[in-house]
Design a protein around this nucleic acid. Structure first.
Lengths: 130, 130
DNA sequence: TCGACTTGCAACCGGATGATTGCAGCAATG
DNA sequence: CATTGCTGCAATCATCCGGTTGCAAGTCGA
């Protein structure tokens, strides 16, 4: 019954890598998850024009008010949107801060990758000449 | 059988908003979706250090090789990663271009939102003084 | 040529998720 | 004070997605 010498390994211990957490290092995963839905982008585009409540948004979107409310909760949970009580309604406003922070983070990472590639390319050229 | 005058509306026609598509306007949704998974970030972090194949990655991650292969396909589909044939293996390399483009896009949008808020604040202050 | 290693495809499973409906509660407005 | 309208919670449903297993196929080295 010994498995027929397959290549696949059983899985080592999980990685447990965690950032040093000096200044609340911004986890891009939940932010990107919030931005990974077309409906939420639709909502954000509208809130980018003007503040609006769930009911107001529901008048212009093809989905139910409750679905929109859920989306707004998710967006607010990651700070992309802020609830602003207005009379008996709750209007929401789009905030650029988190988006900017995420942008800078991604920019840094991408720059790091490309820097490594340039380094590799330089080494390769050096070898080619030498 | 008329519904009891509930607030919820039935849903208007869907929006069909589409970008002018001048220079392939970069759809953030699939990119963010690719970045919305912790395992894929783990993979990207490793590829940011050094190129690696699915099998090599499987030696350091607690999931199966096939799962990793799927992740690599998704990352390659949005241009975050590039397959580099190396002998009988296929190594992957992390590319910063898409990440940078996405970063600039998000930065622009967030700046737009905050600009609108500043404008609103200015108007409010003007009214308060006048 | 044979064997070791790697990739790829297909089927399958459980949990997360986007969306729906129904109903209850609460705050302004008349 | 009662009506109107906005919000929130709960249950339900279909689908998507991350992960697994099993097997077939291709390629490099001894």
């Amino acid at each position: 019954m010994t498995p027929p010498a397959t290549t696949d390994r059983p899985a080592p211990a999980l990685s447990t890598r965690r950032p040093p957490s000096g200044t609340t290092v911004l986890d891009p995963v939940p932010l990107c998850a919030a931005l990974a839905d077309a409906t939420r982008w639709e909502i954000l585009a509208m809130l980018g024009d003007r503040d609006a409540s769930a009911s107001e948004l529901a008048e212009e979107l093809p989905i139910s008010r409750q679905a929109i409310a859920k989306h707004l909760q998710q967006l607010a949970a990651v700070g992309l949107v802020e609830p602003v009580p207005a009379g008996r309604a709750i209007r929401y406003r789009a905030l650029g801060a988190q988006l900017g922070q995420l942008a800078r983070h991604l920019e840094t990472i991408g720059r790091g990758w490309d820097a490594r590639l340039s380094r590799l390319k330089d080494v390769a050229e050096a070898l080619h000449r030498g």
